[in-house]
Design a protein around this nucleic acid. Structure first.
Length: 287
DNA sequence: ACTCTTGTTAAAAC
DNA sequence: GGTTTTAACAAGAG
């Protein structure tokens, strides 16, 4: 389940691997993955990638000399970008692992981008919810406007955050999952942030004290930053652009830990359904 | 055969 | 209108 740290991991790797590269050919293996745009491939040929930006879990790719042509890419639940260098190596520099070892393209490969230096970028997506679609500048602006601010931003306003919690009447978990409120948290990091802040996911947001809100604000920021620093979390499907797992999985305190003991108080971690999602928390130290 | 998994959107219900 | 619930999407794991 790619959330902000996983998408940021992919963004940083793609910047390193495909920035300034020119697309020579695009093969679309599944039309739905490109929003059923029959002109997808032809519009991208001979375009050079200049930047890869991110807002929330959405990637925004821009091109040299093009001010009205962008790509919006969303991994949703099972989307992956996989890069193979011009020498056929996954890691590059004559590494012994090659594309053949990963059997690419495989049955879940939906789009293949070929670059002028013979390198290749694969977009794999088992469940077909993800997409890579062409967008105009206006469409990019509309997409950006749908996201709230990100907890990892230096300018994130914790006072505004606390005030908004007081003004809403939803469970804190539902609110934290709402991308138009704050961007980037998904099921894993919401549970982790709430554990860090000692807050139960089912609490109504207006009942959360200002002190708790401040702790939650810091917890959300810290858990995202710590995960980015180690390449994100692989729980089920996430792989980075070289096919590797994220390393934050070992740091999870509650997500997927039901039945195990809480590392803070020793109680047994519970799993319930909250905001329509599997939700993990410690019934003893989360109030 | 059946349930469960999730990011996002949309629709229906309160 | 705000909010909650449910369905939909899709494919696989158990």
């Amino acid at each position: 389940m790619p959330e902000l740290p996983e998408v940021e991991t992919v963004r940083l790797q793609l910047l390193h691997k495909i920035k300034n590269k020119t697309i020579t050919d695009v093969v679309v293996l599944h039309q739905k993955s490109v929003a059923n745009n029959p002109a997808f491939a032809s519009k991208l040929k001979q375009k050079t990638i200049t930047n890869i930006d991110r807002v929330g879990k959405l990637l925004i790719i821009s091109f040299h000399g093009e001010n009205d042509l962008f790509l919006l890419a969303h991994l949703k639940m099972t989307g992956q970008f996989f890069f193979v260098g011009g020498d056929g190596a996954v890691i590059g520099g004559g590494h012994e692992v090659t594309a053949a070892d990963y059997h690419l393209p495989h049955r879940h490969t939906r789009i293949v981008f070929h670059f002028s230096d013979q390198s290749t970028l694969f977009f794999n997506d088992m469940r077909l919810f993800g997409y890579v679609k062409i967008a105009t500048a206006q469409e990019v602006a509309i997409a950006r406007a749908k996201f709230g601010s990100e907890p990892i931003a230096d300018a994130f306003d914790c006072t505004w955050f606390a005030n908004t919690l007081k003004a809403k009447h939803r469970t804190i978990k539902a609110l934290l999952l709402d991308q138009s409120f704050i961007a980037g948290l998904g099921n894993i990091y919401v549970d982790e942030a709430l554990w860090r802040a000692n807050i139960r996911p089912t609490r109504k947001s207006d009942k959360i004290t200002r002190q708790e809100a401040a702790a939650l604000c810091a917890a959300a920021r810290n858990v995202l930053r710590e995960s980015i620093a180690v390449g994100g979390t692989t729980f089920q499907h996430f792989k980075d652009t070289g096919g590797k797992n994220g390393n934050f999985t070992d740091h999870l305190k509650v997500f997927g830990q039901h039945g195990k003991t809480c590392t803070r108080c020793g109680a047994i971690i519970k799993k319930i359904r909250c905001a329509g999602r599997g939700t993990h928390y410690c019934p003893s130290c989360q109030k």
